[in-house]
Computed example of a mutant assay.
Amino acid sequence: MLRYRAELDADITLASGGSLRARGLLVDVPHAEVSHPEIAACAVAGLGLRDVARVELDQVRIFAEEAAPGAGRSPGRIEYVELSHVIEAGMTTYPGMPVPVITAHRTWEQSRPYYAEGTEFSIDRIEMVGQTGTYLDSPRHRYPDGADLAGLPLGRLADLPAVVVRTVGTGRRVIDAEDLEPYVVAGHAVLLHTGQDRHWATPEYGTDAPFLTEAGAKLLADRGAALVGIDSFNIDDATPAGPRPAHSVLLAAGIPIVEHLTNLGELPPLGARFTATPPRIVAFGTFPVRAFATMPYFEPHDHTRSAGWLPTTGPWS
């Protein structure tokens, strides 16, 4: 049985700063006609890197060799990554918005008369606005005639291939079109990793928070992004009484927005799949979601190091 490998030189730039240089690196690749972006993604996976901004390849050579019995990678399990903040009574998501109130509608003790001896249940009540915790905006949030939560197709919300765009560590607030230009985004959940979630539940969270520009939103809409998420205070520059161009552009194009994500640093640039599904509520525009990512974990069967995720294509040369 043949397996395909690439021998290459690579210069890898890390989103958090610094770079790596590899010479004569050997990488397993899926087939003989593999593209350079696919090779770059495989190289990042093989090195176990997740905080990668760019990969430049040189001296690439593809070759086939006989695989040892049992060599290669086989799927072992699915890894789940939580991307939502926990909702608690009294927490502040957005200053000025009502905080969630969690109470018991009927306690275990109060339920006992309704059931057989030894059987009891609690029924809880929560009062909150849709903009609580990690939440999803449907087009109706911005436009009266836009699709509401019940009108969103599952294909826009569940098991989407994810592209993680990292600006964390750059010191810049703005995520612009030039930051997104290298990425393939059609049909993908585009997740903007700014690192602002480290300030969650503190006054700093809403101070000078990173945001997506109108030009960046237009690029994502024009190129067919399925969903856009951010781990920041707002996808727009949330100045009082200011315009909200990113919301306006994306929601006009039917692209849901997920705000207040967290843990995006746990995801690879490519290879994860993203899900964020709200309840099917008619005439409601925004609601909290349990956002998460899944990544196939591949168990190594030989001396070759195997990363915990499988890449596809990427924004690399």
Rank of each mutant, 00 (worst) to 15 (best):
P269H: 06
L270I: 12
V165S: 01
G314C: 13
P100D: 03
A252C: 00
L136G: 02
G76P: 02
V101E: 13
R244Q: 13
L180K: 03
A307K: 07
G254F: 05
Y297N: 09
L180N: 14
G18V: 01
A40H: 08
P139M: 06
P256Y: 10
A150D: 15
A43V: 09
Y115S: 11
L180S: 05
S74I: 12
I62S: 00
G171C: 12
R173K: 15
P315W: 12
G254R: 00
E56H: 09
I102K: 11
I126C: 09
H105R: 10
L192E: 01
L264C: 04
F274L: 03
A225I: 10
A307I: 03
A41R: 11
T313P: 14
M1I: 07
A221I: 14
A238Y: 09
A252H: 13
R273E: 10
I235C: 10
L2A: 11
E127Q: 13
L180M: 03
L20S: 11
T13F: 06
L212P: 10
S122A: 14
P95D: 00
E66T: 15
P37N: 06
W316D: 15
P311H: 01
P279A: 09
M128F: 12
D9H: 06
A246I: 11
W200V: 02
H188F: 05
E266G: 09
E181W: 06
S317G: 12
L8C: 11
S111K: 01
T239Q: 15
P300E: 02
G48D: 05
L180W: 04
T92N: 08
T202F: 00
A104P: 08
A241N: 10
H260T: 13
W200L: 03
R273F: 06
Q110K: 15
P98V: 00
T275I: 09
V165A: 03
R273W: 15
S306T: 15
R305F: 13
V27N: 07
Y115A: 04
E266N: 14
I235D: 01
F274H: 06
G206A: 01
D124Y: 07
G169F: 04
A253Q: 00
M128T: 13
T207Q: 13
G76M: 02
H301I: 04
